[in-house]
Computed example of a mutant assay.
Amino acid sequence: MKKYTVLFFLLLVTIGATGQTNKKLKTNSTKENLTEYRQIFWNNLPKRVNWTTDYEGIFSDAEEEKLNNLISNFEKETSMEIAIVTIDTIKVAKENFDDLSLHIAKTWAVGKKGKDNGILIGFSKEYRKIRIELGDGTIKILSEKETKEIIENNFIPEFLKGSYYQGILNGTTKLMEVLRMKIKQ
């Protein structure tokens, strides 16, 4: 009887150890797959189809259309281009969010060639991060201090209420208002 108890105990220990090893391997494999997916996304960014790219699925179709129309009208009026991209946690690690925003702005070539007058608004609801990338031509018109104030006063208050579309709309509208005023000066 003791012999069977010892064998049974050894069998349980062996199964338990094997199960833990497989679980650990599976976890590492998942992390490696996510890292690989993020690298593939970085290397093969999809082309921008419109002014708004919503990878997080935050906006309704009507909201996205309203943002696209607002930006399109602004671009026709000023020649300045604004792109909005929401970035989910699958696409980037939190610590690389700013780098990806800049990479998207450069890859999508937001702004007119030779004028470098683009703006990319990168946002992640899940990471609670927003980044505004300004083209070299736009930096001459809009300072980083002004951009920071627009984020704090126009984007963030609505985000804190969970109104992400309204925050993006308010902030984008304020950016356009400030740029129009500065262009006229």
Rank of each mutant, 00 (worst) to 15 (best):
Lys2Met: 09
Lys3Tyr: 06
Thr5His: 11
Val6His: 12
Val6Gly: 02
Phe9Gly: 07
Leu10Lys: 07
Leu11Asp: 03
Leu12Asp: 02
Val13His: 09
Thr18Trp: 14
Gly19Met: 09
Thr21Arg: 12
Thr21Ile: 11
Lys23Val: 08
Lys23Glu: 04
Lys24Leu: 13
Lys26His: 14
Lys26Leu: 13
Thr27Ser: 10
Thr27Val: 14
Asn28Ala: 04
Asn28Cys: 01
Ser29Leu: 10
Thr30Phe: 13
Glu32Met: 08
Glu32Cys: 00
Asn33Thr: 04
Asn33Tyr: 11
Leu34Gly: 01
Thr35Ile: 06
Thr35Lys: 15
Thr35Val: 13
Tyr37Trp: 11
Trp42Val: 01
Asn44Pro: 09
Asn50Cys: 06
Trp51Ser: 10
Trp51Ala: 13
Tyr55Gly: 00
Ile58Ala: 00
Ser60Lys: 10
Glu63Ala: 01
Glu64Ser: 07
Glu64Gly: 06
Glu65Pro: 00
Lys66Gly: 00
Leu67Cys: 00
Asn68Trp: 08
Leu70Ser: 05
Leu70Val: 01
Ile71Gln: 02
Ser72Glu: 04
Ser72Gly: 03
Asn73Tyr: 10
Glu75Ala: 09
Thr78Val: 08
Thr78Met: 10
Ser79Gln: 11
Met80Phe: 15
Ile82Arg: 10
Val85Asp: 03
Thr86Met: 11
Thr89Pro: 07
Thr89Met: 03
Lys91Tyr: 13
Val92His: 09
Lys94Asp: 03
Asn96Val: 01
Asp98Asn: 12
Asp99Tyr: 11
Ser101Asp: 10
Leu102Met: 14
His103Met: 08
His103Asp: 05
Ile104Gly: 10
Thr107Tyr: 15
Thr107Leu: 02
Lys112Tyr: 11
Lys113Glu: 08
Lys113Pro: 09
Lys115Thr: 05
Ile121Trp: 14
Phe123Asp: 01
Ser124Arg: 07
Glu126Cys: 03
Tyr127Pro: 04
Tyr127Ile: 05
Tyr127Thr: 03
Arg128Leu: 08
Arg128His: 14
Ile132Asp: 02
Glu133Cys: 11
Leu134Met: 15
Leu134Trp: 14
Leu134Thr: 03
Gly137Cys: 09
Ile139Ala: 15
Ser143Tyr: 13
Lys145Tyr: 14
Glu146Trp: 12
Glu146Tyr: 10
Ile150Phe: 12
Asn154His: 13
Phe155Asn: 00
Pro157Asn: 01
Glu158Arg: 06
Leu160Tyr: 00
Gly162Val: 04
Tyr164Arg: 09
Gln166Leu: 06
Gly167Lys: 01
Ile168Pro: 02
Leu169Gly: 00
Asn170Trp: 05
Asn170Ser: 10
Gly171Lys: 02
Thr172Leu: 05
Thr172Cys: 08
Thr173Asp: 04
Thr173Ala: 05
Thr173Trp: 07
Thr173Ile: 00
Lys174Arg: 14
Val178Leu: 07
Lys182Leu: 05
Lys182Gly: 03
Ile183Thr: 02
Lys184Val: 02
Lys184Cys: 01
Gln185Thr: 11
